[in-house]
Amino acid sequence: MLVLLVLLFLIVALVGYLIGVYNGLVRVRAAVKLAWSNIDVLLVQRHDELPKLVEVCRQYMRYEADTLDRVMRARAGVDAARSSGNPGSLGAAERELRSGLNGLYAVAENYPQLKASEPFRHLQERISGLETALADRREVYNDAVNTNNVRIDAFPDVLVARLGEFPPAQLLHFQADQKSDVDLSAAFSR
C-alpha cells in the first residue's frame, strides 16, 4: 500500500513537472512571437514616416533623385521582408535601408535650407527615435530567441520539445555595417 502511494506520488510529480515544462515552452515560444510583433509595430510606423521625409527632401534636393529612390526602394524591401516574417531577409533589407538613410542624411548636409527646415528636423528626429526603439526591441527579440533556443535544446525540456512543435527561432541581425563607421566621403562624393 505504501509503495503504491509513493509510486502514485512520483507519477503525479512527474506529470506535473512535464506539464510545467510544456507550458514553459509554450510561453517562451509566445514571447518570441510577441517580441517580433513589437518590432513589426515600429517597422510599420517608420514605413509610414519615410515617404514624408523623402517628400520634404525632394522639395530641396533637385539633383539627388538616385539617393531618394534608393531610400524608397529599400523601404519597399523592408516592407516585403517584414511581411514574410523572416528575420534573415529583414536583416538584409534593414541593412540596405540604413545605408540609404545614412547616405540621405549625409547629402542633406549640402542643403542648409533643408537642414534648417522644421519638417525635415522633425521627421529626422522621429525616424531616429523609431530606430533607437527598434534597436532596443531587437535586443529583446534576440533575448527571447536565445531563451527559446536554449530551452528547446536543454535537458529535459528537449524531450518535451521534440514531442510538440517547438522549432528554433532565428536571431535578428540588422547590419554588419553598423559595426563600421559610416563612409561619409563616399556619401558626399555622390
Binding site: N23, A31, A133, D136, R137, V140
Partner: peptide
C-alpha cells in the same frame, strides 16, 4: 511547482528598456 513556475517566468521573460 508554484515556485518553479515563478522562477521560470522571471528567467524566461526578456528584460526591456523603459524608453522603448
Amino acid at each position: 511547482f508554484v515556485r518553479l513556475r515563478r522562477d521560470r517566468l522571471v528567467a524566461d521573460t526578456p528584460p526591456v528598456r523603459i524608453r522603448s
